[in-house]
Amino acid sequence: MQVPAQVEYERAVSVGHALTLLARYGPRAAVLAGGHSLIPMMKLRLAQPETLIDINALSELRYVEVADGELRVGALARHADLLESAVVGERFAILHDAEQVIADPVVRNWGTVGGSLCQSDPSEDLSAAFAALKATLVITGPDGTRTVPARRFHTGPYETVVAPGELLTEIRVPASPGGGSAYAKVCRRAGDWPLAAAGAMLAVDGGTIVEAGIGLTAVGSRHFCASEAEEHLSGAPATPERLAEAGRIAAQHCRPVSDQRGPASYKRHLAGELTVRALRRALLRARAGER
């Protein structure tokens, strides 16, 4: 069986303690949350941190709550926590859609929302979902907290704006009155990473789209979003033609690469197809909310 290389281990007991440990051990320390991305990479020896700082004891970071209409998710919330939250299902359905197809139920028990975002895998579902929702991420460091839009969080594959010594602590999703959201994904099998996936958030007023958010993953979209397609929808009539055109635009602007899962042409097609499917479903949900 594959086994990690030697590593030191520290267990943080509070956010403050975690920051102290991060400062003490410097850039060759890694934050260990659920570990479902980090530990496999350590087993393959693609990741060889000197020290692991285990934050699983930070129960203060494990919550899913709605305050003032805003969704607040602690970075240590497990995927299962998000899926089990009834209020998330009602008001941010995209997150339930996505969580139902992220990895598998046992992995979702332990993998964390913050860990998934910080891993910054180019195929991460939650990165697209939170991009669609125009979420804000809260990063805590030695000098206090700062917030970063989800769409500026990822700086490249496996890279984020979280600096050494900092910790992602919360994800905030703004309330979206009159909104509906949805997520659509194609993968090769249950539990697989997406071949492509699209998330959509639509706020409508009467027949008009007042706000649109589209997230894409696994197709090389910058910041996991499809801003050109969003622009096409913003302020426009919520018609099937409009949604279809948004799909075409989303497909046009993504930059998928071919691999053994499928050729770029297929993934580009999926970006469009799934964008439209997510938009349609989000619109239905928005309208259901109006009723």
């Binding site: 281990y9 267990r11 260990l32 570990g35 530990i39 496999p40 692991l52 046992v106 028990n109 332990w110």
Partner: peptide, 12 residues
């Protein structure tokens, strides 16, 4: 909670 123990450290 059921977890996959090949991806959890004993230390955890």
């Amino acid at each position: 909670t059921p977890v996959k123990s090949c991806t959890v450290l004993a230390a955890m």
